[in-house]
Simulated assay, not measured.
Amino acid sequence: MVALVTRKDIDGIAIISLNRPDALNALSPSLFVELHDHVAALSEETENIGCVILRGEGRSFSAGNDLKAMQAGEKAPHPFFQAETVEMIEDLPQPVIAEVQGHCYTGALELVLACDLMICGESARFADTHGKWGLTPLWGMSQRLPRRVGGLCAKEMMYTGRVVNGAEAFEIGLVNKCVVDSKLSEETLQMARAIVDNSWHTVRADKMLVTKGQDYGLKDGLAFERENSPGRATGKEERLSTFKKG
């Protein structure tokens, strides 16, 4: 049986690939079960994995939720399983980079919004199409999209369902970079290598402090940093701080 999600490790980087290219990597419940298992494993691998790349095989990252699977009655293990899996990605200790080409619609957009960073190809197309199907967000769109691009832009995308191309995605702050498709994987891997060449201890601390700090106003956020910053790496963590790949 072909895996719906695959993993490949390169020099401290885990590359997680959605693997339903013939279905534009539609997000079926079965795919989410495999994705959940990979994410759960990665959360325990902080000593050998310093960065994660999330991508899709074929010409699209993902066309979004698998409506055919929904119509066929395929169900996830429980009603909020997909949303919890997306949150698990956001909560991974390691930074996660989304690598996006082609379609990235609705559920797929919710999925990549849980990633720390995002690089897209010129072919990338982002949209929230909940309104075209009479659906409402359950995997984080209403919370993460406004935090990424601002409330005004997020409301326009959500209310109209219009498609945002790769160049505009960069302009509005949805992605870090938009590059030619032929360079997409190379650019994403280069960013991941830059991350794992730094102190893993520091990078994990940075992610925790920035992510959790956004739950506070400035004064409380400053206090949170002072009280929760783990300080200089020591012992086993110090070894990870000097991790370099040739």
Rank of each mutant, 00 (worst) to 15 (best):
M1A: 14
M1V: 08
V2K: 12
V5E: 00
K8I: 05
D9T: 15
I10L: 14
D11A: 14
I13G: 02
I16K: 02
S17Y: 07
L18A: 01
P21Q: 10
D22A: 14
L24C: 10
L27G: 00
S28D: 05
S28K: 03
F32Q: 04
V33W: 00
V33R: 04
V33H: 01
L35W: 03
L35C: 11
D37V: 06
D37R: 12
H38S: 04
A41Y: 03
A41G: 10
L42D: 01
S43I: 06
E44M: 07
E44Q: 11
T46G: 08
N48T: 15
C51N: 07
V52D: 00
R59H: 06
F61N: 00
S62T: 13
A63Q: 10
N65M: 11
K68W: 12
A72P: 02
E74T: 03
A76V: 05
H78D: 06
T85K: 03
D91Y: 04
P95H: 11
V96P: 02
E99A: 11
E99W: 03
V100C: 04
Q101V: 10
G102I: 07
G102Q: 06
H103P: 00
Y105H: 08
T106K: 02
T106R: 03
G107P: 01
G107Y: 12
E110L: 00
E110R: 02
E110S: 09
V112I: 14
I119M: 09
E122I: 04
S123T: 11
A124H: 08
R125I: 11
A127L: 07
A127R: 04
A127V: 05
T129V: 05
H130Y: 03
W133Q: 00
W133K: 10
T136M: 15
W139D: 02
G140R: 15
M141R: 03
Q143P: 00
P146K: 10
P146C: 00
G151M: 13
A154W: 02
A154L: 09
K155N: 09
E156D: 12
G161R: 06
G161K: 01
V164S: 02
G166R: 05
E168T: 13
A169K: 08
A169C: 13
F170Y: 12
F170C: 14
I172Q: 00
I172T: 06
L174N: 09
L174Y: 12
K177C: 11
V179W: 01
V180Y: 01
E186R: 07
E187I: 08
Q190K: 12
R193G: 02
R193V: 10
I195E: 02
I195W: 08
N198M: 14
T202I: 14
V203S: 02
V203L: 06
R204S: 12
A205W: 04
A205G: 08
A205M: 10
K207Q: 04
T211G: 10
L218I: 13
K219H: 05
G221L: 04
A223T: 13
E225N: 05
E227C: 04
S229E: 11
P230M: 15
P230K: 04
P230N: 09
R232V: 00
R232W: 08
R232M: 11
T234C: 09
G235A: 08
G235M: 08
K236G: 09
K236S: 15
T242G: 13
K244I: 13
K245A: 11
K245I: 13
G246F: 10
